[in-house]
């Protein structure tokens, strides 16, 4: 099964996104913030997809995105922001930092699925 990671400081959101990705055929690893994600990534196989919240303690999603995109081993990993940030400047900032897609909360399974389909990563 394809591997994915969900990074969000809300345990409820982590659980919901993990369930959605699970239904789409992914095995999901979860992390509470950017630093936790980097630590877990160093100990696991490279995921195909990472969903990233923006506002988190310790290391936020934008900082994680910049850091991960500076690491060549994650060049091909699809990274999608899933966040409450809804200003166009934030969307642009994330895209410029290397996000492949951007979802504004609240989301549904259909929204996640439709975005992943656009990226060629629909149901696995």
């Amino acid at each position: 099964m394809a591997l994915a990671m969900v990074i969000d400081d809300s345990s409820a959101t982590r659980m919901i996104l993990a369930r959605i990705l699970g239904e789409l055929g992914y095995t999901v690893e979860k992390a509470e913030n950017g630093a936790d994600a980097l630590h877990k990534l160093s100990k696991m196989s490279r995921p195909e997809l990472i969903l990233i919240d923006w506002n988190m303690p310790v290391m936020n999603g934008y900082e994680f995105l910049v850091k991960a995109r500076s690491m060549p081993e994650y060049d091909d990993v699809t990274m999608m922001m899933v966040t409450t940030e809804t200003e166009i400047e934030q969307v642009l900032k994330a895209l410029e930092a290397g996000a492949n897609e951007y979802v504004m909360k609240p989301f549904t399974k259909d929204i996640i699925d439709e975005k992943l389909s656009l990226l060629g990563l629909g149901a696995r």
Binding site: T86, I88, V91, L92, A94, L95, A99, E101, Y102, V103, M104, P106, F107, D110, I111, E114, K115, S117, L118
Partner: peptide
């Protein structure tokens, strides 16, 4: 609406 632009619209085209 925000829900509508979330559905299927690639973020680069949104901006």
């Amino acid at each position: 609406s925000q829900i509508e632009i979330n559905r299927g619209l690639p973020a680069p085209l949104l901006v």
